[in-house]
Amino acid sequence: MNQLERDLLNNLQGGFPICPHPFRLLAERLGYSEETVIKGVKNLISDGYVSRFGPLFNTEKLGGAVTLAAMSVPPERFDAVAEQVNSFEEVAHNYEREDHLNMWFVVLACDENMLENVLHQIEEKTGLNVLNFPKEKEYFLELKLEVPQ
């Protein structure tokens, strides 16, 4: 990773300007040309370091429902169950974690009823209990993942 890419990653995680030429403004701040910054951002996306560039919408405020769910999956069934769970288009992330609750995933749906419905369907499909951990409050922070030298 070169200096340009690091500078971009460290300065593009929030607060993108809303003005006629936002990349030019950003380029001036970082000491590059507008063209360099635009090309750099495109490269970060095509190289897979950035999954998406744009506004991060608040699902709940847009009327959607989101939760974190977990299951205790027998190790010998893990891969098969992961496939079953991931086949639901409402499942966004799925992580294997070190715990007896070893599968953790985020579920998004258009509303609370639909969300409940999806969790039930996952239980039916897998024959396993799904624990639901709805969010009560988010403690916001300046999301900054520092990309060092």
């Binding site: 929030g14 993108f16 998406r52 506004p55 991060l56 919408f57 916001f140």
Partner: peptide, 23 residues
């Protein structure tokens, strides 16, 4: 419209969404 979405809290953050693992 984007300013308004920000102000109403419908946009949490505006910028790059990183792939932690790739980084």
């Amino acid at each position: 419209a984007l300013h308004q979405l920000m102000q109403d809290g419908l946009i949490n953050r505006f910028g790059a969404i990183l792939r932690h693992r790739a980084l």
